[in-house]
Nucleic acid binder design. Sequence first.
DNA 1: TTGTACGCGTTATCAA
DNA 2: TTGATAACGCGTACAA
Lengths: 363, 363
Amino acid sequence: MPDSGPMPPAGRMLQRAAKQRTAQSPATIYDIAALAGVNASTVSRALTKPGRVSAKTQKKIEDAAAQLNYQANPFARALPTGKTNTVGLIVSDITNPAYFDVIRGAEGAASARDYTLLLAESAESAQTELLAAKRIMTTVDGIILASPRLADEQIRELAKKKPVVVINRMVEEVGCVVADVQPGVTEAVRHLATLGHESLAYVAGPDRSWMSGHRWDSIRGRCEWSGLRVRKFGPGTPTVDGGREMAAAIRESGATGIICYNDLMAIGLMQELQSAGVRIPAEFSIVGFDNIFGSDFTTPPLSTVKSPLRETGATALTLILAELAASIEPGRADDSALRAEAAKLATELVIRGSSGQHSPAAL
Amino acid sequence: MPDSGPMPPAGRMLQRAAKQRTAQSPATIYDIAALAGVNASTVSRALTKPGRVSAKTQKKIEDAAAQLNYQANPFARALPTGKTNTVGLIVSDITNPAYFDVIRGAEGAASARDYTLLLAESAESAQTELLAAKRIMTTVDGIILASPRLADEQIRELAKKKPVVVINRMVEEVGCVVADVQPGVTEAVRHLATLGHESLAYVAGPDRSWMSGHRWDSIRGRCEWSGLRVRKFGPGTPTVDGGREMAAAIRESGATGIICYNDLMAIGLMQELQSAGVRIPAEFSIVGFDNIFGSDFTTPPLSTVKSPLRETGATALTLILAELAASIEPGRADDSALRAEAAKLATELVIRGSSGQHSPAAL
DNA sequence: TTGTACGCGTTATCAA
DNA sequence: TTGATAACGCGTACAA
């Protein structure tokens, strides 16, 4: 160590300069600083909060940055800040087309705000879900859990570390995005009643699915209100095959207006019934949930309670970002706007061919 | 500066200790070092390449790490290394269900190797695709481009900076994953010929789609070989509506064995034809491509040339990782195994109800 | 085998 | 308003 002057920065910049010649490593704020004739810290200021620097140097720096095709290194930025501009999304089953739109909505909302989406799947297992969550946790600013299989307590535990928003489930003390099932269910029950169905049935999903129970509660309540009989079948697997397996029980039940936990089950049920010679909708009316891609491909096309899947994904991401902002700048508790936005997420009946006038007479 | 001893490390550790009391910030290698009574660098060595440290201290460190619930900070790790353990996947259109399985395959392969998947959409625009690519580029070890809209040259440009693998398209000098269309097309053409169709038609996708042209080339070649007449229609939009729009032209064309660029178009075409009173498959046989989710929901269910979508996604990710490994350790050019794996990706005809004996007589 | 010291690119805290 | 400098957590030559 021959010298004791301001060595580190000088040495650093010399090294940068040398490096610049050899490889084509991306430009750093030091390169910009050199080009603009200012200090690196000034560059940092100018590029992050464009108010703490004079207009003149601001422009010089911006020009230099543009010329050098500068792109901030997210990792270097994340280190002192802790902010990664990345949100994780964990879905329980990528196979399920209902999530496609959720993913799409979240991705759109994210990239619109210069955020990036990290995707992971839990394969319907609480254990791998927790694993994925922990792995991702270190990398993201917040996590969206779509129909999580985790226990409430585990979710709250995660939420202590980073903002967590849950989709399609209510968990105390955690941000939740759940579309209002009431309007869609109300319409559906009324629709079936109008069609002449006096005995309804609900084909439930898995017991562990919060949403399945929620939908059942809503349907039952509505039927009581309307004086209709309704029975619950299941639990069943929330897939096409799961719907198929319920066909026999439904057929013998005497119920003629069937609402299924989701479109997948509805499609399976309908297919199985049809292949047994049952006429839809003459003998049974079938209504699904979600309005997934392909639910109108069937013959007859499926009537369904449409869920605002894409909006749900987008709203979840917005909520995460809001929680993030709140944790930094705790003054503003204007959840109101967000709550309002989330409240707009309502279901709605889409009437297609699988529900119609009940006319078993025409045997 | 009262002292000139080994200040920095000591000061750092003191601060850590103080911090440890207050907030619940995640444990670092310094915490482990303190607990195990060794230096932080030893911890780093023990945790990265478990061979450069004595068995005894190794255990001590691992115990301490476990006790502290240690989780390496990916950002801090990425900074000196440049490695992020993250792969980006850009799809041209999340709406298209064909990508669902690709995403799924890639995600599965990634998380199996402790990699994380970054998802982005280009919304069918070359410009936003480039933007997304550049934004993501800084964050990932490599990028997978599914049916990119970018020009070949732009893709090569990207590939100069980080490993790039392209799905469903051939680009010189860039890793590509394209399922072999030959077997599926051969089966399909033979199938239609056997059914009595003498005049075939191909409903093309967008002109910009490399895959659409590729499929057409293969079909045409196969038809020539078989002495069948075949005409190309389009270009069209690769959606259900795009398929619908081709119905009139197809109906007047005289062709009766129709192969569509993808299932979406096939479904639209079939629906439109049926709603005009045309009987499928008696009058027209329709075959799609890909075997997407829901292609068996239609009545009749769609015959289709199945693509190994999921395997394609998984293979693409594997390829990226291989290129990554090769760029680090250039000695091993054992692409052979990979090429072999990629070569196994073949299409295959799935015969369902939309194709059948040609019997226009039964008017 | 282990410890020392530095750099990765950025932000944040001070002085100036 | 700007500059100098210390973190952020980890990997790694180099020295011991």
